[in-house]
Design a protein around this nucleic acid. Structure first.
Lengths: 335, 335
DNA sequence: TACCTCCATGTAAACGTTTACAATGTAATC
DNA sequence: GATTACATTGTAAACGTTTACATGGAGGTA
């Protein structure tokens, strides 16, 4: 109930409110004697500054908004944790907002484009319309993308081409030549070009090793375990089926494993499978996969945003994070 | 950059700021003609009210803090989603804060016990010290617990006794008589009595069916898959081993499955296993388990908090959510 | 002692709202 | 047409800070 103000502290310490404010903001223009008095009074009264007043006066919200898809995906949660970590030492509050549809996203982002809501905005694993980018630019509200891409904005992304290449190279080095590729639709306006980049990496790796790309070995469809299972079955039922499959996401890799079980294939004896993302379940399933630095992406994105806010930096930066191969039990030499 | 204020809107609409404020807060004391003028001016100037000023004036933060353990646990994330859903239609911002240690928790909660940070606080799946409860009470800051218990606070909990009973009954109905029970230490000050309640439910179910409780069939130890595996081995190596094991958490149930595999037992032929929580992996592993309404717990907790804030309700309420049996493949009739 | 300098502190005006109260205008009653 | 009553609008004071500017006093120099 009790909300003790600066005025009361000032009275108690027999100084003016200005002095109290100066002490609390560690302005140096204050005697150590009065400083002590003030601090003592604060402690006695249990004073805590009113944030709303401070924010109003300073014209800052000390708040950062993070917009992301539903919190159901473990990868999103992990990135969010990184953001939290980045913001923890700062005085900024983090308000995450998960949107369901792209309309939600746009209307919410539009409502954010207003200086009194946030000092900066993070967009995680979501595309953003050109119109909104311009809107943010025009009001000068800092915007940083994590796992999303836009040339005019500071962004933290992963080198998916390198990742796709890494996965494919791993299979080639094991001795595979007939290597299948399964992914979402490559031209998905909602998920950028990460899938496409992984496919590019796959193509590049094949090319480097002089293996001709065979379009019959490539399948794309809706995201999901079940869809992936069907695509994998099509590949496995080819006259000359692949001996290894690179699934562009772990969820899809799990579908591939389902298909292999269905056809009675042993893993990795009859079929090698590699995924992408290193989700939680990949560990239980012993799935070889490509790891993205999820936590770090959040961390770097958060830090970048803080820096932009504090230094008024304008030049957009691209932070490219490395991927790594997580070697587990679903890949091996072909029979 | 441009931050248009009420004053500018007032000038544009040729009215006073008070009138603008009245229009925007849908106070009825205003002519429809002036209302139109004001709304037109707002639209033209792209006015959005300054939240900090509003909050300062109203003495409200329009913010709710949620304190929870690390966001690594999927169950916590799910509850958080429920909270978000509850708060979405309101004008309250949700700031989640995940704490690592119990010192973190206490110091953070203490820093929250200050009217200018939040209008209400949610504590999810964490114990809270008596001292802090009193602190919140004394400053009149609403506090609601989700998956935690305290007689003086409004709380959303699950009927773990019923859950334990349900799991045990399921096994009994299948024909099992020698039913093992594996759990964390039952007297854990960090996790309340949920484990203990599940045990109570187990005892009650046995009693109801006239089966004598055999203490040799009950094991408790540190939480974790590995620990559970060891406890299960001890049970399985008894002269007259149980034909079914109820593990008080899915993680522990997975350890039981490990032990069964190690002893070459078929599931559910030689051993039935039932878990608790219905974690994500339970689906993959085809584990029969008890489901907790995680999302709903967040939803109900959020709604309860909003109601307390808005109606100044003082009487603590206990909301007991039902559990349900998720029938999968690890339980069956004994041989 | 008189003067200047400099530093610590106090005074008061903002920040953008909301709202009690005052003032104005309009319609109704006599 | 004067008076009243009421509905609408305006005026101005808050809310709790920060900070530019004013003030005052101590110490140094001549």
């Amino acid at each position: 109930m009790s909300s003790v103000t600066m005025k009361e502290v000032a009275e108690r310490a027999k100084v003016s409110v200005a002095t109290v404010s100066r002490v609390l903001n560690s302005s140096d223009k204050v005697t150590s004697k009065t400083q002590e008095k003030v601090l003592a009074a604060c402690k006695q009264l249990g004073y805590t500054p009113n944030l709303q007043a401070k924010r109003l006066k300073l014209g800052k919200t000390q708040t950062i908004m993070a917009v992301m898809p539903f919190l159901t995906l473990p990868s999103i949660v992990e990135r969010l944790r990184g953001v939290q970590q980045a913001l923890a030492p700062s005085e900024y509050d983090l308000i995450p907002f998960s949107v369901g549809s792209s309309e939600d996203r746009d209307s919410y982002l539009a409502s954010l484009a207003n200086r009194s809501r946030a000092d900066g905005v993070l967009v995680i694993s979501m595309p953003i319309t050109e119109k909104l980018v311009q809107r943010f630019k025009s009001i000068g509200l800092p915007l940083v993308l994590i796992d999303s891409n836009h040339p005019d904005l500071t962004r933290v992304i992963v080198n998916d081409i390198a990742g796709g290449k890494m996965a494919t190279n791993h299979l080639i080095e094991l001795g595979h030549v007939r290597i299948g590729f399964i992914s979402d639709h490559l031209e998905n306006p909602l998920h950028f070009c990460s899938m496409l980049d992984r496919f590019k990496g796959y193509r590049l790796a094949l090319e480097d090793k002089g293996i001709e790309f065979d379009p019959r070995y490539q399948k794309q469809g809706h995201h999901g375990r079940e869809e992936a299972r069907k695509m994998a079955l099509e590949l496995l039922d080819l006259p000359s089926p692949p001996t290894a499959i690179f699934a562009a996401s772990d969820t899809q890799a799990i579908g591939v494993l389902d298909a292999a079980r269905e056809r009675g294939l042993s893993i990795p004896g009859d079929l090698s499978v590699i995924g992408y993302d290193n989700i939680r379940d990949a560990d239980y399933l012993n799935l070889t996969t490509i790891n993205q630095p999820l936590f770090e992406s959040g961390l770097e994105g958060g830090q970048a945003l803080l820096e932009i806010i504090e230094t008024d930096e304008q030049e957009p930066q691209e932070k490219l994070l490395p991927v790594s191969l997580i070697l587990r039990g679903t890949t091996g030499e072909p029979k």
